[in-house]
């Protein structure tokens, strides 16, 4: 049960967004711009993967499953493969550039000051651009907010991971700005 009375039975952040819809608007616009806007050299799948990995590190069940299912949908891979990436991205079959960006996201999750110049050099050597570095840091920081919002208010989450996999195609289609009550 959530720590506050939400007057709805929606899970995770959706219950919070229905509770405070005026706040939901900028939250959804941020997610839409960072994760789904196609004017970006990182694919939607790559950006969802960053969100998934940070949510995994923050141990936020709802967020890591929603975004893991979306990453799997975009990357056309099985949810088991996403689980493997979360647990050990360094041995996963993803691009060397993505590995260096996930390493930066991992540092941001621990603390902004943990990101070193060596990590920035390494990701640039793999071809990452300044804006990709910027977006990686901001996606990681944003998920540190979303995860704390969802868990700090004690929201509930469906435990069946298949629930998230089945919803992902629709979320991918409709985007974040229509997500609140559906």
């Amino acid at each position: 049960m959530a720590h506050i009375q939400l007057d709805n039975d929606l899970p995770g952040i959706r219950g919070l967004m229905a509770y405070r819809p005026e706040i939901a608007e900028p939250l959804n616009l941020l997610a839409e711009t960072l994760l789904r806007n196609d004017n970006n050299t990182l694919t939607r799948g790559e950006r969802e993967l960053i969100g998934t990995y940070v949510s995994y590190l923050n141990d936020c069940f709802f967020c890591q499953n929603v975004h893991g299912a979306l990453a799997g949908h975009y990357m056309q891979c099985d949810i088991g493969e996403i689980e493997n990436i979360k647990q050990d991205f360094r041995s996963a079959e993803i691009s060397p550039k993505m590995k260096t960006l996930l390493s930066i996201a991992e540092s941001v999750q621990k603390g902004g000051k943990q990101v070193t110049s060596a990590q920035i050099e390494a990701t640039k050597a793999e071809g990452a651009t300044d804006i990709e570095i910027h977006d990686t840091v901001l996606i990681a920081a944003s998920f540190c907010m979303f995860n704390r919002y969802v868990d700090g208010l004690g929201t509930w989450a469906p435990q069946d991971k298949q629930f998230y996999v089945e919803r992902a195609p629709r979320r991918a289609e409709e985007g974040y700005q229509s997500s609140v009550y559906k």
């Binding site: 941001v108 603390g111 990681a140 944003s142 540190c144 919002y149």
Partner: peptide, 16 residues
Amino acid sequence: LIAGLFCLYNKYVDGL
């Protein structure tokens, strides 16, 4: 949510 938002800001400002 304010606490969450400032975690975003702090990590954004220091992460870059």
